[in-house]
Design a protein around this nucleic acid. Sequence first.
DNA 1: GTTGTTTTGGAATTTTTATTCCATTCCGTC
DNA 2: GACGGAATGGAATAAAAATTCCAAAACAAC
Lengths: 251, 251
Amino acid sequence: MTETLPKRLRQCADYIAANTDRIAVSTVAELAAGADVPPSALMRFCQILGFSGFSEMQRLFREAYSPGWPDYTTRLTNLKENGAGSPAALLAEFVEAGRLSLEQLAKSADEAALTQAVQHLARADTLHVIGLRRAYPVASYLTYVFEKMQVPAMLHDGVGKLDHRHALRPGDACIAITFAPYSDETLALAQDAQSRGLPVIGITDRVTSPLARLSTTVLTVPEVDFGAFRSLSATLALSIALAVAIGSARG
Amino acid sequence: MTETLPKRLRQCADYIAANTDRIAVSTVAELAAGADVPPSALMRFCQILGFSGFSEMQRLFREAYSPGWPDYTTRLTNLKENGAGSPAALLAEFVEAGRLSLEQLAKSADEAALTQAVQHLARADTLHVIGLRRAYPVASYLTYVFEKMQVPAMLHDGVGKLDHRHALRPGDACIAITFAPYSDETLALAQDAQSRGLPVIGITDRVTSPLARLSTTVLTVPEVDFGAFRSLSATLALSIALAVAIGSARG
DNA sequence: GTTGTTTTGGAATTTTTATTCCATTCCGTC
DNA sequence: GACGGAATGGAATAAAAATTCCAAAACAAC
């Protein structure tokens, strides 16, 4: 795991890997400055890679430099035409679905609801997050972000069919995420929270969702499906924004 | 429109116009050779265009080359300094980061690697998926999709610190997902799979990732971070495409 | 601590590349 | 076909970049 390269060489490796597109158009000095190493370190790095020096490596990149990768739209078309059903074509579809979702989210996001949600959640003690099945990745990421931001949060993940509804305490709040077909367990927890008078923030796909009735504040996400699967891009973007806003409102 | 230029200068103009994308990565001598003029003619051409010389013109093209990397780290810093952004502003940032990531993914995706990954995974018996911390949402979604498509898959989620490495059987394959800072457990499982001769498909952030060495096939995802958090849009798009391709390849 | 080894930074050197300069050629005009 | 001004090519020079090298620093093993 720890193929431990010397410090400077590791810096070179990381910077170069993260900026492959700049190699062709930069000088040793520029790249070295970017990687925050002296030029000689970068030279050493090139040699360890098996090139005679930087120039040889650069020559490779300059030749490979296919006239600036085609712009996004062209490339997408290429991917799609690459035989329907090919992995590349599928990728293009999902990329497009994701982009569309994000675009719609940006257009349709309800700022007032978002602000209200942040207020509720910033005031609460512990945040209870629930999302199952395809909402589970979102719920788990939310919880991860809360943990990183030192916001007390609990993920109700249903492991072992354990039910933790009694963990809901006065002063807490609940974030419930579910999409059609709505998950009973999620709705049940939201209901429980509501009946205890806790704020419930619902993230769902439409205002007519059963979750809407159970929520103090509803955030709807226009996710574009491709085939049977949704991209989650928009849902995740909304969730992270929510989490970060809460995190900074809290401290 | 064209006050008639002297012959050599005309050649320069034509060649340069037709090869704007090569300017950034070529020397005077190379371009001159391409235009079939002596280097000095090209120099004159640059000066007539109003540059002090070739270098100045090239600098322009080199900078223009890398179109958009408006780096998000500085933007977040700015945002933070301007007082915490409103939730809506944050949302806009995450939407933008997601869009950029998807765009980059479409541009840079390695079709060959993707196809290869699908081939390996379509042939395998059980698919072992591992991804922890911020890669966990991806791993869990992958597993969800596999389940829906009736592809035998097992999520190594580390619940209860249980280690299931002996679940890896001959004929199986492993999908490992990790981003810097790389998770030891993920690398350990990948290593284990590799040493048993199972195909390992790595999804990671750069080719220098320690996961790369452990993988039969590496898929790199250019995820644009906003602040400390990544959008996961691109990673999810790639993962779903992978899963669906595998599902349909299996029948 | 001492010793031997690896790593590092920067100054010195070499190579490559850009740029200038000028003698020569070309071309239109008389 | 002689003249003058523009255009040209290549050799000479300047600038910039790459590459090497070595003394100092960091590190590891004893």
